Structures are given as C-alpha cells and as structure tokens.
Amino acid sequence: MGQGYFVTGTDTGIGKTTVSCALLRALAAQGHKVIGMKPIAAGVENGKWHDVEQLLAASNVNVTRQQINPYAFDPPISPHLAAQQAGREIDLAVIQQAYQTLSAQADRVVVEGVGGFLVPVNQHQTGADLARALNLPVILVVGMRLGCLNHALLAAQAIKIAGLTLAGWVANCIDPQMLAVAENIATLQQRLDGSLLGVVLFDSEMDLQESARLLDLVTL
C-alpha cells in the first residue's frame, strides 16, 4: 500500500494543482510510481476538468479519469452546491474506496482537495472530513499575497483540530507585486509546524519539471 499526501490550500485558485503536479514530478524523479487524485472537481471548461487532466498527465501509472476523479461537476461553485444542482450527494466512502484502489497501484498518491480545507462537500461534511477519512498527512499550499499569514495560520489550526499532521507547506508566489515576500515566508517558517518544502515562483512560462526542482522532499 502506497503512502499518500493530501494537498489543500489557503483558498481556492491558490495553486493546489500546480503544486500537486510538481510533487508528482518530484516523487517520480525519485523513482516512485505516482498517481495524482482529484476526488471532487467542480468547474468544466471546453468539456474538460483541467485539474484532473493535469494530474493524470503528471502520473506515471496507467489509470483512468474516472478512477482518479469519482465526482465531477460542471459549475465552478462549492462542491456541495454543484452536487445539489446535479441531484447527487458526495459520499466520502466512495472516495475512500477509490483511494484504496489507487494506493494499491502506486508508491505515492497525491490527493488534491477541492477549494479550501473547510469547504463543504455535502450537507454535513467538509474538506476536513475528507482529509480525515483518508487519514493522510497534509501539505498546505500558501498563496503568497496580502492576507496570507492569517489564512495560512487559520488553515494550519483547522488541520490540527482535525487531528491531522501538517507534513509541510509550499509558498506559491501568486502575486508578483506582493511586498516583503521573504519576510512573510520567514514569519510562516517560525509559526507553522510543518517544514517549508519549497517556494514556487510566479512565472507563467515555468513548466512542471522546473517547479518540481524547487521542492525539497527530504522531510516527507
């Protein structure tokens, strides 16, 4: 049974997919069989869920879209609302079973969450319940922009309350105009329990191999 990681973020649109794919590339470069999983996807564009496509492309084990993505919804809205509109309900047991199947085929499974850590996934459960159901160490993607200190510390607190381990975090420099980036990163290094795994630079031309080389996975 392979080791897994649950990737969450300080917000939606914060770079979880970029970091998840970079993690997959870095782990594959270490010789591991890797699979990226997106249990819940919300937001289709031109007939495709691009997060799912990117994770599939970054995996080096032959799996299908349906295997890595049990729930896919068209509108880019909170998953519990998207499921309601589709007349469905997200069942964490279905996701658990899908993860177990993938984990049996790979050395490492990188599970990308949906939205932020506490986003509702059904009427009673959140992304925290999903991470807890899979019982995986968490990697937090911190979008480096004004307000990120509060967002990161709140997310870390929620991860701790859920009884999960913050295995590490990645600083994703999404705002090229942000002031005092290094100082903000240093502040988070002092206050977050998990290790800084790397700083992903804001560069629309940077490919995943380059991003993967920016990550230090020694502590994972």
Rank of each mutant, 00 (worst) to 15 (best):
L23V: 00
R25G: 00
R25Q: 12
R25T: 12
A28F: 02
A29P: 03
A29F: 03
Q30W: 07
G31C: 08
G31R: 01
K33T: 13
K33M: 10
I35D: 02
P39F: 04
A41P: 00
G43S: 03
V44H: 13
V44C: 15
E45I: 13
E45H: 14
G47M: 08
K48G: 06
W49S: 08
H50W: 15
H50Q: 15
D51T: 01
V52T: 13
V52Q: 05
V52P: 06
V52G: 03
Q54A: 15
L56H: 14
A57R: 14
A57F: 01
A57P: 04
A57T: 05
N60R: 07
V61Q: 11
V61S: 03
N62H: 15
N62P: 07
N62E: 15
V63T: 07
V63N: 10
R65M: 10
Q66P: 01
Q67A: 15
Y71V: 09
A72L: 09
A72S: 14
F73L: 07
D74W: 06
D74I: 15
P75R: 06
P76W: 09
P76R: 04
I77V: 15
H80V: 08
L81Q: 13
A82D: 08
Q85F: 10
Q85P: 06
G87P: 03
G87F: 05
R88N: 13
E89K: 11
E89T: 15
D91P: 10
L92I: 13
L92Y: 00
A93Y: 08
Y99C: 08
Q100R: 15
S103I: 07
S103M: 09
A104Y: 11
Q105C: 06
A106R: 04
D107A: 05
V110Y: 00
V110P: 00
E112P: 04
E112I: 03
G113S: 02
V114L: 10
G115K: 00
V119R: 05
V121S: 05
N122L: 08
N122F: 06
Q125Y: 01
T126S: 14
G127S: 08
G127E: 10
A128S: 11
D129V: 05
D129Y: 00
L130H: 03
A131V: 02
R132M: 06
R132T: 13
A133W: 00
P137A: 04
P137D: 08
V138N: 09
I139V: 13
L140N: 11
L140A: 05
V141F: 02
V142N: 08
V142S: 09
R145M: 12
G147H: 11
